[in-house]
Design a protein around this nucleic acid. Structure first.
Length: 666
DNA sequence: CAATAAGGTATTTTT
DNA sequence: TACCTTATTG
């Protein structure tokens, strides 16, 4: 309890009724959650194995676990659950797979897998545009709307089509003995609503729940929490409605209000002291967000001093903007001995990173960019995992289709189409169908031969997998299919092939680690399930704490903080985004700006360009309306007349680089 | 089946 | 403008 402010203490020690902690940006919410866990265990209220903390990201879960266990002895912390919604869901499903109609070796489909399946189904229905429909279906699943309900409530033509595809999609992946990410939440809710004994088992096990980033829960996740917390309402929800930026993905910030309705005894604690930013930054953030409607009024304050005003940098062009930012960073680096890792460049859309990357590279400034393609969505990684998935779950047609002709086995589309038809008629998986005589009669002898060879190999390795450790199996797969040769043949450059192969070996290394660590990840199936839910990029980037400027979208910046922040491209059509100017969306855009501002500890610089080429065509753009919503007394506009020319800036930058190189030379 | 050309399309993406 | 996806052709 040392060093907690009165509100934090109240949040930690409140028991007996559900608690909602409205935690403003930088107000120490992780601290409250971890302290509360420790406090409950120490006081003997609950033992560690009766407590579950639930987060959205693996990173948050890892951090929370680390910080909570630091407060406790190893013995005290034993059995504590800290997991993401999806991992918790997976564990619930695993235990009851049979009752839900799945075999215990079910696969987890990632977003790309389900997209491909849906596309294929849409194609069969002669539907062109599958993208819209995918959104509709995902929204239904997030709202816990079943296939049957969707069919009833579908109104528009799109919705009616989506309802048909929804039904087919669910049937399809069920046949694959697979679940998608959304199912990891939907299925536990279904289970609990239909089988009170299953619910009771979990209620019995998890006596107290702490939920992080509560404003980001979707309807289904909230339902899951409400079921688990039961009438006891043994629950602490921590969230901030002002940082709700995922409504477009199904998040329901109104779940905060819902909590009050569902639990009349709900206690609300507000954390308003901010430990991150100087007060001019906070006052500006407060003023901006004050333009949004609020259920609970919040006013962040800090004792970190008034601080510097927020700098506003108008720029002629995006190139000009990039140059200014880069030269500011260099200046700070050499004049104030700042580290590169003290800086973050935040933007609305990923495409905005390009110019910055180029300039940073040219100036020899280390940078790291978060977002982009994750490790597990790389083709080579997905290929290897698909092999493993198929070994663990022969019904996984998605995996089968991915690797049947990768590397090339001369099994073409027409053969596969026939196989698909045949499997559909026989109501079996493609792998099973491929081995049936009836199928052999429909295709050429050559094709049969090729498929047979593959099936035989797969059969052998599947049998070997039963009593061989997973690491050896992966190695054997890579070896047997000559994956390295295939990479060398298909990649444009040998360098590319090498780097891809490096990724492949990283998977092997990962599997080895997971297997050695044990912790319930013994079998191939368990290891793949785990790998489907975590991303290796996180772990890698954390390991090397490099001194690099951070580049990321505003969404990716949530939860982070930096001494100096550049909020760039603060223009109409960009922030707020052109597609998000209706009354509801504009509020989320404002929250996005709010999140950006509140990342800054000491220095905040906001920039915008006056012209920006959009889709190849140059056009004049207006500064963001949000600039007018900031308190003028805390802003310092860069004097346009005094501003040095781009040429002068470049010269400065060059001088700094020379300086840097000289320093490195010593 | 692979290479090439043309076309169409451009928020955000925790799992 | 620059990307990625699809269609076409040999």
């Amino acid at each position: 309890m040392n060093g907690l402010n009165p509100q934090q203490q109240a949040a930690v020690t409140h028991l007996g009724s559900p608690l909602l902690v409205l935690a403003g940006a930088g107000s120490g919410k992780t601290r409250v959650i971890t302290q509360k866990i420790a406090w409950m265990i120490r006081k003997g209220v609950h033992s560690a194995d009766q407590i579950a903390a639930i987060t959205f990201t693996n990173k948050a879960a890892r951090e929370m676990r680390e910080r909570a266990t630091q407060l406790l002895t190893k013995e005290e912390a034993k059995g504590l659950t800290v997991s993401t919604f999806h991992t918790l869901g997976l564990n619930i499903i695993k235990r009851e797979a049979k009752r839900l109609g799945y075999k215990k070796n079910f696969s987890i489909l990632d977003a790309q897998d389900s997209e491909a399946i849906l596309k294929e189904l849409a194609h069969k229905e002669d539907v062109e545009e599958a993208d819209n429909l995918r959104w509709i279906i995902s929204r239904w699943k997030n709202d816990f709307i079943s296939v049957e309900q969707a069919a009833l409530l579908a109104n528009t033509t799109d919705e009616k089509l989506a309802a048909i595809l929804y039904e087919k999609y669910q049937r399809q992946i069920k046949a694959y003995n697979a679940v998608d990410f959304d199912d990891l939440i939907v299925l536990p809710v279904q289970l609990f609503e239909q089988h009170p004994d299953a619910l009771q088992h979990w209620q019995n096990k998890l006596r107290y729940l702490l939920v992080d980033e509560y404003q980001d829960t979707n309807a289904c996740q909230y339902r899951l929490i409400r079921l688990l917390a039961g009438i006891r309402g043994a629950l602490t929800a921590v969230g901030d409605d002002d940082q709700s930026i995922y409504a477009w993905r199904g998040a329901r910030p109104e779940n905060i209000a819902q909590l009050q309705q569902d639990y009349p005894l709900l206690k609300v604690v507000k954390l308003e002291q901010n430990y991150r930013s100087t007060s001019r930054i906070l006052q500006s953030a407060n003023k901006l967000i004050g333009n949004n409607p609020h259920l609970f009024k919040k006013n962040l304050w800090s004792t970190l001093g008034e601080g510097d005003p927020i700098r506003i940098m108008p720029c002629r062009t995006p190139e000009h903007e990039v140059e200014k930012v880069v030269s500011e960073i260099l200046k700070a680096r050499f004049r104030d001995r700042a580290d590169f890792k003290d800086f973050a460049i935040l933007y609305r859309g990923n495409h905005q990173s390009r110019l910055f990357e180029k300039a940073l590279r040219e100036n020899n400034i280390a940078y790291k960019i978060s977002g982009g393609t994750s490790f597990f969505s790389r083709a080579e990684v997905k290929d290897i995992l698909a092999y493993l998935r198929l070994i663990a779950n022969p019904d996984d047609d998605a995996a089968f289709l991915r690797i049947i002709n990768t590397p090339k086995r001369e099994i073409g589309t027409s053969t596969l189409e026939k196989l698909g038809e045949y499997a559909f008629e026989r109501k079996t998986s493609m792998l099973t169908a491929a081995q049936e005589l009836g199928f052999a009669q429909r295709v050429s002898a050559k094709a049969t031969q090729r498929i047979e060879t593959f099936c035989f190999w797969l059969h052998e390795i599947t049998r070997a997998a039963e009593n061989t450790d997973p690491t050896s199996i992966v190695k054997q797969v890579i070896n047997d299919v000559s994956y390295e040769d295939w990479l060398k043949n298909t990649c444009n450059t040998p360098k590319q092939a090498e780097s891809r192969m490096k990724n492949v070996w990283e998977i092997v290394e990962w599997i080895r680690k997971l297997h050695d660590d044990g912790a319930g990840k013994e079998t191939l199936g368990e290891i793949i399930a785990h790998m489907s839910l975590v991303d290796m990029l996180e772990r890698n980037s954390e390991e090397k704490e490099q001194d690099a400027v951070a580049l990321m979208t505003l969404h990716a910046a949530k939860g982070l903080e930096f001494p100096s922040v550049f909020l760039v491209g603060v223009e109409e059509e960009l922030l707020p985004h052109a597609n998000s100017v209706d009354e509801h969306s504009i509020q989320e855009e404002r929250r996005l700006a709010y999140v950006g501002i509140t990342r800054a500890q000491k220095n905040l610089t906001i920039s915008y360009a006056k012209t920006r080429s959009r889709y190849g065509e140059a056009s004049t753009v207006e500064p963001s309306r949000f600039l007018e919503e900031l308190p003028p007394e805390h802003l310092e506009w860069e004097d346009k007349k005094a501003a040095i020319t781009p040429e002068q800036r470049q010269e400065t930058a060059r001088a700094y680089v020379a300086n840097l190189q000289a320093l490195l030379g010593d």
